[in-house]
Design a protein around this nucleic acid. Structure first.
Lengths: 222, 222
DNA sequence: CCTACCGATCGGTAGG
DNA sequence: CCTACCGATCGGTAGG
C-alpha cells in the first residue's frame, strides 16, 4: 500500500489547457452566446439607452451572470460598437438582396422603382420585427468613441453609396429637385424619424409609408 | 423643583419657520440660479445624454456644489422635464413671433411663404446658437416618465398645430401631395435629423436648408 | 463562463 | 445654497 505510487501519465498524453476551459466540441455554442448577448444588448440599448443599461441587465437578459459579458467583449463600449457593426452588416446585405431580387423580376428597373425598393427595405430594417440594431446606431452615436465611429462610418458609407446613383438618376430625369446630397440627408431624416412615432399594427403599414415617402419627395417625370 | 413646568410660550409669539431658510430679499437671485441650472443641464444632456450626465456635472457647470440642484428641482428627472418644457415654451413663442413679423411685412402671406417662415424658425430653434433645449427633447424622450411626457406633449401639440392649416392649404392648392399628416411627420423628420449632421460654419446655411426643404417637399402650384 | 469581490461614482438627504 | 454623508449600483477583474 505504502509503495503504491500514483500512476504516471504517458508522456504523449495531451496536455490539458489550463485557465480557460475552451470547448473542444462545436464552436457554435460560443458563437450563439455572443449572439445572445448582442441581441439582448440591442434590445435594452434601444429601450433604455446605452448609459441607462447596465452590463448586469444585459447578462441577465442573455441568461448569464454579471461578469460573463466581459468574457465576450472587452468592455461595455465594445459591446455597443459590436451592436452597431452587426446592424450595419445586416442592413447592407439585406439591401443588396432586395435590389437583386427586384432586378430579377422586372429586368429594366426604373430609378423610381429602385428608390421604392431602397426605401421599403430601409423601413424594414428600421421598423420591422427584431430590428433594434439600427435604431441603436442612430440614437447612441454620441456614446461611441472616435475610432469606433470611424469603423461604423465605413459600413454606413457603403450602405448609403447605393442610394447615390439612384437619386442622381431621379434628379437627371427631373423627378427630384434640389441638391441630391441634401435630398439624401432629408430623405433619411424623414424615414429615420419614423422610429419615434411608428406603431406596427396601427394605421399605416410599411408599404403605406413607402408610397407616402415617394409621393412626397418625387415630382412627376418630365 | 419637581413642580417647575416648562415655560409656556406666549400665544402670540411669531413661530419661526424651521427647516428652510428662504430669502426675504429679491427673488431674482433664485430665478437666475434656476435658469443657470437649466442652461447647464440642457447643454450637458445634449452633449452626453441624460443618463450619462451626473447631477454633480450639472452643479459644477452652474457653479454650485453637488447637493444644490436638489434645492431647485425635486430630482434629476424633474430637471430633465423642466429643460424640455422650457424648450417648448421658447420654441412656441419664437414661432408665434416669427409668424407675426412675417405677416406685418407682406400683408397677404401665401401658404408657401407661411411654410418657409415655419421651417426657417424651426431650424433656428433646432440648430441656432444657444439651442440645446429642443434637441434634448427630441432625443431624450424615453428618459421621461409618462406623466411628464404628457405635460410636454401638450406644448408640443400646440407647436405643431400651427403647421396643420398651412400644410392643408398647400395640399388644397396641389403644392403638397399625399396625406398631410404623414407629410408633417416626414417633414419634421427631415428637419430634426439635421441635428445629427448640420455643422454651423460649413457649406450650407439655415437659409440654404430652408430653401432645400421647400424645393424638395413642394410641387409647383397648379 | 461563474464566484467573489473592489474602487468609484451616483442620486439624494439631513441639518444648518 | 453648502457640508457631510449614506446606501445602492456600476463597470470591471482575479482566479478558477
Amino acid at each position: 500500500m505504502s509503495d503504491a505510487l500514483p500512476p504516471i501519465p504517458p508522456a504523449d498524453e495531451p496536455r490539458r489547457a489550463r485557465g480557460r476551459p475552451r470547448k473542444t466540441a462545436d464552436e457554435r455554442d460560443d458563437g450563439n452566446r455572443r449572439q445572445d448577448l448582442l441581441r439582448a444588448a440591442a434590445r435594452l440599448f434601444r429601450q433604455q439607452g446605452f448609459a441607462a443599461t447596465s452590463t448586469r441587465d444585459i447578462a441577465t437578459a442573455a441568461g448569464m451572470r454579471s461578469g460573463s459579458p466581459f468574457y465576450h467583449f472587452e468592455n461595455k463600449e465594445a459591446l455597443l460598437a459590436a451592436v452597431m457593426l452587426e446592424g450595419m452588416q445586416r442592413a447592407s446585405s439585406q439591401q443588396a438582396d432586395a435590389m437583386q431580387a427586384a432586378a430579377r423580376h422586372g429586368q429594366a428597373l426604373s430609378a423610381r422603382d429602385c428608390l421604392r425598393v431602397l426605401v421599403r427595405n430601409h423601413l424594414e430594417v428600421l421598423l420591422g420585427a427584431e430590428s433594434d440594431f439600427i435604431p441603436v446606431m442612430l440614437y447612441e452615436w454620441r456614446s461611441l468613441s472616435e475610432p469606433q465611429r470611424q469603423a461604423v462610418n465605413e459600413l454606413r458609407r457603403e450602405y448609403e453609396a447605393v442610394w447615390v446613383p439612384v437619386l442622381q438618376a431621379l434628379h437627371d430625369r427631373g423627378e427630384l429637385s434640389g441638391d441630391t446630397s441634401l435630398a439624401r440627408l432629408m430623405l433619411f431624416g424623414a424615414l429615420n424619424w419614423a422610429v419615434q412615432w411608428f406603431e406596427p399594427g396601427r394605421r399605416s403599414s410599411l408599404d403605406d409609408l413607402t408610397e407616402a415617402a415617394l409621393q412626397l419627395f418625387l415630382k412627376e417625370a418630365v
